[in-house]
């Protein structure tokens, strides 16, 4: 993994790439790429380092977290010097992330995990599409768009894939609230039922 990172840095000194450590025993560390460099880095990985097989594309929702910070200050209270603890809560802004798992069939190596982040979860949710580099990302990026609401710039056909087109929300987001009745749709019966209800209540 560090070798791959050095190769990218040697070829593209201006590219924003950093190593993300994975504490799990499997030791699959990943590379985080800045959005502006993602397409160039992907092409470099495919053409120069032999990562010809993009296996898995996954959206991840990292919601806004609250982090508690405790500060200890020395203050003089009633003429006596004391240590006073103050706890402040700070919001770590959330973001959406796309994770690509790459393998090399020609060199038989992998997985190389590539991560690209959006700016936030609401307005700035665009990342460059890697479908021009690996066609296999096509349906999977559509799925990430469908379920997470990540917009892929340059995707040839960015539409909902699993949910229906009229669906408005993004069900895989952590703050998604499912409706009480999935199959509710207004019918003429509603009017009649309302009339009956009004009549029985009046009586």
């Amino acid at each position: 993994m560090t070798g791959t990172l050095e190769a990218i840095r040697a070829a593209m000194p201006s590219a924003g790439v950093e190593l993300v450590n994975n504490p799990s025993p499997c030791g699959q560390h990943s590379l985080r790429v800045e959005r502006k460099d993602a397409l160039a880095v992907a092409e470099f990985l495919r053409d120069r380092l032999g990562y010809d097989f993009c296996s898995n594309v996954s959206g991840v929702d990292w919601p806004t977290r609250k982090v508690k910070e405790t500060n200890t200050k020395k203050e003089v209270v009633d003429g006596v010097e004391k240590e006073v603890k103050t706890t402040t809560e700070r919001d770590v802004p959330g973001f959406l992330e796309v994770v690509y798992h790459l393998y090399s069939i020609s060199e038989n190596s992998g997985p190389l995990t590539l991560r690209v982040r959006t700016g936030d979860r609401e307005a700035d949710v665009s990342v460059p599409s890697l479908t021009p580099v690996w066609k296999s990302a096509d349906f999977q990026e559509r799925e990430a768009f469908d379920l997470f609401g990540i917009r892929f710039d340059g995707h040839p056909d960015l539409r909902r894939i699993l949910m229906w087109d009229e669906f408005a929300d993004f069900p895989m987001r952590k703050d998604y609230v499912p409706p009480d009745d999935f199959e509710y749709e207004p019918t003429p019966h509603d009017e009649i039922l309302a009339k009956v209800k009004a009549r029985t209540e009046a009586a």
Binding site: N22, P23, S24, P25, C26, Q28, H101, P111, T113
Partner: peptide, 10 residues
């Protein structure tokens, strides 16, 4: 409760 981290198994 697996420790915090991630894994891709195939």
């Amino acid at each position: 409760r697996p420790p915090a981290g991630e894994a891709y198994g195939r």
